[in-house]
Every structure is written in structure tokens, then in C-alpha cells.
Amino acid sequence: MPIAAGSPSTSGHPTGRRSPSTPSSTLRPDVETWRGRGVGRVLLRAVLDTARERGIRTVSLSVERANFAARLYVAEGFCTVESFEDADTMVAEIGA
């Protein structure tokens, strides 16, 4: 049973990225099966650990305000740096 599917962003819109040259990807978990089981936290921490290992100091993301995961991002140290109509860009300083 798949946990999540990821795909690169093709919108060309920089929402969620601090610069247009920053790569972007989307992670869409099978919400009905996995919500509330800690899978999102495990996946997020793995992404942040990998970023640290590669020397990345800052990670940004965009999230719709109605998204259940927005609380997770705050709990994991992300802060809102820009707000749009129904979504926010959040950043975490993760060190290296």
C-alpha cells in the first residue's frame, strides 16, 4: 500500500520557494489511510535530515491554511514568512 506520491512542481509559480531557482516538489499522502499516524512527521523529518546532510540551512514550503499538516509544520519549527489568499509560505532554519 503506497504511503505517498511525489511529483515535481510544474506550475512555475514561486509560491513556497524563497527563489525561483529553488527546486520544488509535492508530496501527497494517502490521507484516508495515514492521517494521524505520524507518517507526515516521519517523512518531514527525513526530508529535513537529508537537507542538513547536504549542507542546506533553510527549507521553505507552501501550505494551504485549511491543510491539516499546517500544524505539523509549526510544531517542527516552520514560521510563516509570506501569506497569500488561502496559503502561506513557511520557512525553517535547520542549520547544517
Rank of each mutant, 00 (worst) to 15 (best):
A5L: 15
G95R: 04
E85S: 10
G95T: 00
L72Y: 12
I94S: 09
S9I: 00
R17M: 08
V59A: 06
E85F: 01
C79G: 04
T58D: 11
D30Y: 08
E64I: 13
P23F: 01
T58C: 07
P23R: 05
I56V: 14
P2N: 13
G12E: 10
R17Q: 12
G6M: 11
V42S: 10
D88H: 09
F84S: 04
R71D: 07
E76A: 07
D49T: 06
T26P: 04
E85C: 05
P29Q: 09
G40A: 14
R18T: 11
S60M: 06
G55P: 03
P8C: 03
P14D: 13
E82P: 01
S21W: 03
R18M: 09
M90G: 08
V59T: 10
L27F: 14
V91S: 02
V91A: 03
E32N: 12
T15K: 10
L43F: 04
E32P: 05
R41N: 06
I56G: 04
R28E: 09
L48V: 07
V91R: 05
F84E: 09
F68P: 13
D86I: 00
R41F: 00
T22K: 04
S62M: 13
S7K: 10
A96N: 11
G77H: 10
S83Y: 00
I56A: 03
A51S: 13
A69M: 12
T80M: 02
R41Q: 13
R65I: 15
P2M: 14
